[in-house]
Nucleic acid binder design. Structure first.
Length: 560
RNA sequence: GCGCCCAUAGCUCAGCUGGAUAGAGCAUCGGCCUUCUAAGCCGGCGGUCCGGGGUUCGAAUCCUCGUGGGCGCGCCA
């Protein structure tokens, strides 16, 4: 509808420009939905934006444009308002068409094919298997998974990926910690590894190992030899065991991955070494102090970075560059890396490394979505997370306490750029102040109405093409239709800007309008035409709520 | 010191990419359940949109300089 009005207005503008003998490239036509119904359904600022260049007062130009506007059945009338806005009042038929679209398209309403099946990868969580997932990982999981769902709804071919390191110093540290525990040591004892891990899970891990357990994770299977001297076996077992724990948490969170990618595979395949050679050949490196440096300052970094250490090992960012080259070579037109903001310095470095490869990778590639810290509140006080003591609130604890839906909603409903306070008491409260129940309740209410009507033998499955919507005329009904019409824009914009919180905010507004409508007007009235029309509207709201909640990975219950 | 993020009602946050009179919830005060789910609705109170400049017909929104808070500045990952 917006597009239709925009093109009509474009025609009118071209005509007026020609009539005035002017010749310039007009400012792009902007059409927006109005906030105030008194301003019509759609409004445009073209007259304000172009008045000066045409030498016309904005209101005069607006009048000329309205006169030059081609006739169209969808537009009932236009008005000129304020400093020169053109307000469009749409015909009731064209508003009802939106509802027909919802009913006809069902769970596909709001989806589009702007991604054209092109490949996009969303990498998120990517936690190294050295401990349980915590709340920060939860934020990454909620945001990343929603992004993947939103991109898929926009017609992209989405791959969700989890990258981790199953070798290296931290994993070795993990293995040594488990080994120490197998030998009955505790973190307080002298023989405990320096900077060893000390959570309760180390105890569980050691017990499972000594019991000779067989572990099956989504991407690994290992059987413990129960031999406390076999560090290699302990390492493999510990990684598989923790990966399995992560799998369980992610599954209960409704999050799944298409690919688990191992950092070690980049060494085994020679891709890391190839990247080093290529950077040297491109004269992007130099030797200093016995180390090999990359000139990242050539690409906006504030200092050059060591890529090969004095001891001959590589720093972490080299496999990162190799990993991203690998992504590029897999044909991902768009890559979104979702990470904690404490890793933000990696952004410049990885992009610099990719540019230095001279592999025709676009400068701003890949995209990053960095989420800020999460603090958890309970009983009005912050829940302190102490990694050193090994005591911290895990994602599993949170899901067990407040449930999957509330946890996901709260973690995805804020801009990732803002710090997030997760209030456990709020997430648990079953009331108005808890948006997730508020939205789900609106959905359940419609289901309840349909159930009741069905019990009375009234037909509740409506035909999108033939159902009569003429009886809809209450201001709240018109507002709800307009609200439904926004959903496709929201889905589209959420994908372009990589902001899943837009879906969450929209759903809250839609639910609020529906609750108000529900309290003011009854669906199950005797007048059949009115009842059917209101049922159709309610069903449309239910469908959009369900579609939106699905994009957030939150369930849409039929009863509460 | 340098870089990134944030700042809107007492509190938690929206504000649809620069539009018309800045909006919700909580808290507080007052109403609505013999009628489709009160996990709901209606109304009252509540604002220096952190501050100063600038761009613009128009700024909470863009630019700039500050202030305050968070995070990061390893040959750790």
């Amino acid at each position: 509808m917006k597009d239709t009005v925009a093109s009509l207005l474009g025609e009118a503008l071209a005509k007026v420009i020609a009539e005035n003998g002017a010749d310039f490239e007009p400012a792009p036509i902007q059409i927006e939905r109005t906030r105030d119904p008194a301003h019509g359904d759609l409004a445009s600022n073209v007259a304000l934006a172009n008045g000066k260049r045409l030498g016309m007062a904005p209101r005069a130009l607006a009048e000329a444009l309205c006169a030059a506007l081609p006739a169209n059945g969808a537009i009932a009338r236009t008005e000129i308002a304020g400093p020169g806005f053109i307000n469009f009042f749409l015909s009731s038929d064209s508003q009802g068409d939106v509802l027909r679209d919802v009913l006809r398209l069902g769970e596909r309403f709001g989806h589009n094919d702007s991604g054209k099946g092109h490949k996009v990868q969303v990498e998120f969580v990517s936690a190294n298997p050295t401990g349980p997932l915590h709340v920060g990982h939860g934020r990454g999981a909620a945001v990343g998974d929603s992004l993947a769902r939103i991109l898929a709804a926009n017609g992209w071919d989405v791959t969700s990926e989890f990258y981790y390191n199953d070798a290296g110093a931290q994993i070795n540290n993990l293995a040594l910690s488990v080994q120490a525990r197998c030998r009955k040591l505790t973190p307080e004892d002298d023989g405990w590894p320096e900077d060893g891990y000390r959570g309760d899970y180390i105890v569980e891990l050691a017990e499972a190992y000594l019991a000779g357990e067989a572990v099956q994770a989504s991407d690994k299977a290992v059987t413990a030899s129960a031999n406390a001297d076999d560090l290699d076996n302990i390492r493999d077992f510990a990684v598989a065991w923790l990966r399995r724990e992560q799998d369980l948490d992610l599954k209960s969170f409704g999050v799944s991955f298409d690919v688990f990618f191992l950092e070690s595979s980049l060494y085994e395949s020679g891709e890391v070494e190839a990247v080093v050679q290529r950077l040297i050949e491109n004269n992007a490196t130099y030797e200093k102090d016995g180390a090999l440096w990359l000139r990242t300052t050539d690409y906006g970094d504030d200092k050059d970075r060591v890529m090969r250490k004095q001891d001959g090992g590589y720093t972490y960012f080299l496999p990162d560059v190799a990993y991203h080259l690998n992504k590029w070579q897999r044909g991902f037109e768009r890559v979104i890396d979702e990470q904690g903001a404490d890793h933000h310095s990696t952004v410049t470095r990885v992009r610099a490394g990719l540019q230095a490869l001279k592999a025709d990778i676009p400068e701003g590639w890949p995209d990053y979505v960095l989420h800020q810290m999460v603090t958890v509140m309970r009983d009005g006080a912050e829940v302190k997370l102490s990694k050193r003591a090994g005591s911290y609130l895990t994602l599993r604890d949170l899901i067990n306490e407040v449930g999957r839906d509330a946890t996901r909603y709260f973690l995805v409903a804020r801009s990732p750029n803002s710090q997030l306070t997760f209030d456990i008491d709020l997430a648990l409260s079953q009331s108005n102040d808890n948006p997730v129940y508020y939205i789900q309740y609106a959905h359940a209410r419609v289901c309840s109405v349909k159930r009741r009507l069905g019990e009375q033998g009234i037909k509740v499955d409506l035909d999108a093409e033939t159902v009569s919507l003429d009886a809809l005329g209450e201001p709240q009904e018109v507002e709800l239709l307009k609200q439904l019409a926004r959903f496709p824009d929201i889905v589209s914009r959420a994908a372009v800007t990589a902001e899943p919180q837009q879906v969450a905010n929209y759903l809250r507004e839609l639910a609020a309008e529906f609750h108000a409508y529900y309290n003011a007007h009854k669906v199950a009235v005797d007048d059949e035409d009115l009842r059917t029309a209101r049922l159709a509207l309610s069903e449309g709201v239910r469908q959009v709520l369900a579609n939106g909640l699905d994009l957030l990975g939150v369930s849409a219950p039929e009863a509460m």
